[in-house]
Design a protein around this nucleic acid. Structure first.
Lengths: 137, 137
DNA sequence: AGCATATAGTTGAGATTCTCAACAGTTGAG
DNA sequence: CTCAACTGTTGAGAATCTCAACTATATGCT
């Protein structure tokens, strides 16, 4: 058996980074008066999308999305618009306020993450390439 | 303005990886009959620790820990033992079943994460070093 | 067309997670 | 001894999440 279990080390590192990232995100969400799940959903609403897509992005049950969108709707950030082609689906569309909130959220999130990942340009490039490879599966 | 906003790319990559990791972890937790938060807590109970420490590790309120530990206790995975030196604090100690569950959880989690991060040894080393640097503050 | 099957979203029930304010008991410093 | 700080709990209430059941709609098959 390998004396140096590098894989486990890597997993621990990734989990630590993940934890910090999550805390940072939840903090900025809270600053903007958003619960974590609603904030996360907001980041995915780049363009109008069916609720189904959101469910897949968030890897959760459709009924869960209903609740999250209810929250966003109550806050006046999104509206549910009927699809012209399929009367079952509802498109989620950001309101003006929703657009603004999304922009703020993105800015703050990127700022905070950038702060965490402040590395020399060369190493940032390395990191990007490695992660791209990981996701390429 | 920089035409190539690499930082944002990096942030997106990291968030994507984070999401997959979270989904994988929640799935294994579910396989073991554990809710996510309780599973996460279990991973930190390497050794007996005061509830306070757990609250810091999880970056959450003490009252939240009470609930999570209640769950773990109901499942027979941990017990609350009084500290011999400070009568305010309670140490969380894994039961036999708790030890087993924790071991299973760690194994499955590492396995799944390893699958995600299957890279040539050299690149894994690079990734480890980069992430270490990130965490070094 | 008619009919079976699949899909989108909602609802209700119930467990879990989380924050906040208030509290009891304990500790430790001045 | 007294006061401030700390540990864990409780209660209230919002939010998240899964599951099963349901409505309405769409699609494929014959």
């Amino acid at each position: 058996m390998d004396a140096d279990n590098h894989v486990e080390d890597l997993v621990n590192l990734v989990f630590e980074v993940t934890g910090r990232l999550r805390n940072g995100f939840n903090a900025t969400a809270s600053e903007l008066g958003l619960p974590p799940a609603q904030a996360l959903a907001l980041t995915r609403l780049d363009a109008p999308a069916p609720m189904r897509d959101l469910a897949e992005w968030l890897s959760c049950d459709a009924s869960n999305v209903t609740g999250i969108v209810d929250g966003l709707e109550q806050r006046g950030l999104v509206t549910r618009e009927p699809s012209p082609t399929d009367r079952r689906v509802k498109f989620l569309v950001l309101t003006k306020a929703g657009e603004r909130k999304r922009a703020e959220l993105n800015t703050l999130t990127t700022t905070k993450a950038t702060q965490l990942f402040k590395l020399p340009a060369g190493e940032q490039k390395q990191l990007r390439e490695l992660l791209t490879k990981v996701l390429a599966e």
